[in-house]
Design a protein around this nucleic acid. Structure first.
Lengths: 172, 172
DNA sequence: TCGTTGGGTTCAATGACTGAACTGCAGGTG
DNA sequence: CACCTGCAGTTCAGTCATTGAACCCAACGA
């Protein structure tokens, strides 16, 4: 994005957008919350050019949103995981997801509080427990159990057909 | 943005990003929540090229986020106001604002529940009342009352130096 | 040794963004 | 009325980001 910063805006929203405002970035972070950790899985799930994915991952690491670590199972590879600052983006991500669900509904997912199975409201709040659970205490599953034709066949999409707890690595 | 859509993503986040994911769009909406309604005020406050502003406003009108109406005070001009779907973006906008405030703090603003003067938490929740107020029930003011050098001199920045209720038109 | 896979980088073409210049309309002034 | 000003855009050439394809290298496995 041309001039990805907003230097003239003395506003914390502008600062946030400099980190997550570029094309693809929020989708990458959504996948990170869903447990995607490897370059190849991001790429297969997002259909994103590798050059862009590489740039975004590096940028997110530089900005302290993701951490790049050696992959314990494969020498010479990496895994990308959310840092505390990255996990702290969950309320914003969930709010956007919920808005899209209400106003642009396509096949969507439910997000439920893991300790009580209650779907979260638009503010990420659990009406049963009266708390606002953190991502590790939330699981997600596709809404509407009747099988529609599956659109994507990549390993991540397949894994997410079953209920999955946020931040828990997806094995592929 | 090249290919501003994310057709391959069967996800409500992708649908939301197609509406608000382009550069400048969320800053325009932030200003709309702050009460900016006229082309010229957006332009002066954002330092955005007029061609881009024009395109974004039209796009947001097409997407049902803003409504363009004749300006009652000036024949041949318009005012842009948030629709119900646009106002419903407040939780997402506030969550991003709050994240930037916590992790990228620059001179920021407080958002307080108008009925009790309590600052909202990161989820937009009022800890005193136990409610999550809608934008018309929130006011904002600059944090930290000691005068720092004023960076921007435009009418909107000046008006926002004093407490201001969200959605209430800024008179310039 | 060779082939394959993961994880990138490089490159030309395309398209979005930028800033400056231009236009058209409405009101105000002399 | 003629002139000027300010708003709300549109047009345009130049710059920069994105895209998809091709290429590269290191680490396996056969």
């Amino acid at each position: 994005m041309l001039g990805k910063d907003y230097v003239a805006q003395d506003c914390s929203l502008a600062r946030a957008l400099e980190v997550i405002g570029e094309r693809w970035t929020l989708l990458i972070l959504r996948d990170a919350f869903f447990g995607v950790r490897r370059f190849n899985d991001f790429q297969a799930h997002l259909d994103i050019p590798k050059a862009v994915l590489s740039g975004r991952l590096s940028g997110l690491v530089d900005d302290g949103i993701l951490e790049r670590r050696p992959d314990p199972q494969h020498a010479g590879r990496h895994v990308y995981e959310l840092t505390a600052a990255g996990r702290d983006l969950w309320p914003a991500l969930h709010a956007l997801l919920a808005w899209g669900d209400r106003h642009r509904a396509s096949n969507s997912r439910d997000f439920k509080h893991a300790t009580c199975d209650t779907p979260l409201d638009e503010h990420g709040h659990c009406p049963t427990c009266g708390t606002t659970p953190a991502p590790h205490d939330i699981y997600t599953e596709p809404r509407g159990r009747r099988r529609r034709r599956v659109i994507r066949q990549d390993p991540v999409s397949t894994a997410l057909q079953t209920p999955h707890r946020l931040l828990e690595p997806i094995e592929t």
